[in-house]
Structure formats: structure tokens, C-alpha cells
Design a binder for these strands. Structure first.
Lengths: 153, 153
DNA sequence: GCTTGACTTTAAGTTTGCTTTAAGTTGTAG
DNA sequence: CTACAACTTAAAGCAAACTTAAAGTCAAGC
């Protein structure tokens, strides 16, 4: 039912030093201690730590996660704050994903760019290339990257 | 045709100090200087900086981006390295997206958790909850979070 | 020709999130 | 009862990516 810091660290695949750091920063106000001062983690604590992991992966700072843990400790009166926090973080992650998908498109374009250059033996092949030589899916990205300040004149 | 650091900074929405830092770190070996030492950015430089931005968003470190810029400076002989780098980064971003989607599911579960708690007025509503009370899509996440070391005994 | 704002450099400072070190305590195995 | 691994704390150290400060140069307008 209880784990030492080493055991829970292994279960979560996080160094014990990191867990001690989290504790010091106030992220783990729920962790109990044995009479001699050793941290005793329960299964409920495992769940809390999994949520902390999730919030970290969502990009939240230690400070913000701490605020959330304080809300948890404060009880049912803070349910609205916690709900809206999860809602915000969900939106946050959605926009991160959207951002990464844009990034992905540019990377795919550059992959195509270098595949083509590899075949031709030189990057110069792209200088003599017409828009129609670029696969449709990459044309808008190509234009975004090569936008000039004065297209005309 | 040429921009000062302030102009290109505005175009890219990056502080000039950051661009100087990039230059110092060797990310911008292509930038030319006026006779008096002022950086002159061209449209081609804008494209290079856009790619640097992309690689940063993909999670690459300054050091790794520098290595890429060195390949670019070295010419066509490094096309294979650059191609495989973009390929690796694409895979990298794909797995980041997959990770964020997992994160998203947990956030959505917690959002549901607190919506339910808000309606009930207390988080305690979840203690008396049966698996069948949990929406199907959230059951596996619920179980992952509440996994105990010894389900039986 | 002088002011002013934008540029230059070097160096130091900041923030975040750990990680490491040092010195000490605990608890289990032989 | 002693060894030894695993726990404890406080404090220092570290890496990454900027940001700020200080001191100076440049160029355009009045």
C-alpha cells in the first residue's frame, strides 16, 4: 500500500531527486511521512503524481502546478478553478498540436526539398524550378518561405 | 532588398537581442555586414531564419541547429545529412504530437471529472462511482490513473 | 554640426527545472 | 553489532536560451 521514494520513482520513471525537488517546491503537500521522516507514497499519491506528469507534459510550470495542488488541498470550494484550469490547459494543448502540425508541414516540405536535391546532386536544382514543379501540397509553404518584400518593380 | 536587424526582427516577431544571440552562437553565418559593421539581412536570410524558427519549434537545440547551418554552408556534399536530419525531425514531431494527444485525453478526463464534481458540489461523488458511471471513452484512463499495486488480496 | 534613435560588442544577469554534493540518519541482512 | 544501501536535508552547481547593461559607433533629420 505504501512506497518509498525510490519505489514510486521507479514506478513513475522519474529520478527520486526530482520528486524531492517537487516536494520542496510544494507540489506534493499530500505526501505523508513515517515517524522517522521518510516519505510514504500511497496509490492515491501515485495518481496525483500522474496528474502532475500530465500537467508538465501539457507545458505547465512548476509554479502553476503548485497553485493547482493548493486548490486540491483547499477542498471542494475550489472545484470551479480546477475545472477551468483543465479546460484552459486542454485548449492550450490543442493549439500546441496545431502549431506542431504546421511545423510538420514545413519539415515535410524541406524533406521533399532535399530528396529532390539529392536526386539532382545539387540544391541548385531548386533555383531553376517553377511553381508547377513543386508538389501541390508544398506550394503554399514554399511561397510562405520565399516571400519577398517587393514581389514586383 | 536588405533589412536591418530591427526590421527583420519585426518581420519575424523575434527580439533583435535574440537574433544577435543566434548570430553569436553561429546560427547565422550567412548574414552580411555593411562597411560599418551593421548586419544586412536579405530575403534569402529571411527564409533561413524561418527555417531556424521551424527547427526551434520542432524542439531542436541551438547546438543542433548550428550543426545544420554549418552543413548548409558546406554545400551540396552535405545534402544527405540534411535530408536525414529533416526526416528525423519529422518523426520527432510526430511522436511529440502523439504524446500531446495522450496528454489531451487525460486533461479531457479531468475536465469531465471536475464537471461532474461541480454538478455534485463535491469531489466525493467520484468515490461512490462505479466504472459504469464513467463515460466509455474515459474508462481506460481512469483505470490507468487509479491502478493499485495489489488489486486483489 | 549636433541630437537622436538604431545599431554595435562584451559581459554579466535571469529563469526554469533539475542534478549533484556533502553530511548525516535509518533500517534490514548477516 | 556492524555493514551497507536507501533514505534525509540544505546548498551549490549546471545547462539552455535568452535578456539586460554598459559603453561605444553610425546615420539621418534639423
Amino acid at each position: 500500500m505504501f512506497y518509498t521514494i525510490g519505489e514510486i520513482a521507479k514506478k513513475l520513471n522519474i529520478p527520486p531527486s526530482t520528486l524531492r525537488y517537487y516536494d520542496k517546491e510544494g507540489l506534493l503537500p499530500f505526501v505523508e511521512r513515517s515517524s522517522s521522516g521518510i516519505r510514504m507514497f500511497s496509490d492515491k499519491d501515485f495518481e496525483s503524481l500522474s496528474v502532475i506528469e500530465c500537467l508538465k507534459k501539457a507545458g505547465m510550470s512548476i509554479k502553476d502546478i503548485k497553485r493547482f495542488m493548493e486548490w486540491c488541498a483547499k477542498g471542494d470550494s475550489t472545484i470551479p478553478e480546477r475545472l477551468s484550469m483543465f479546460h484552459r490547459q486542454k485548449e492550450q494543448v490543442l493549439s500546441q498540436i496545431a502549431q506542431l502540425q504546421e511545423t510538420l508541414e514545413i519539415l515535410a516540405y524541406k524533406e521533399w526539398y532535399y530528396e529532390t536535391a539529392l536526386e539532382a546532386g545539387t540544391c541548385a536544382v531548386h533555383e531553376s524550378m517553377d511553381l508547377s514543379d513543386i508538389p501541390e501540397g508544398f506550394r503554399s509553404i514554399h511561397q510562405k518561405l520565399t516571400q519577398t518584400s517587393s514581389e514586383n518593380t
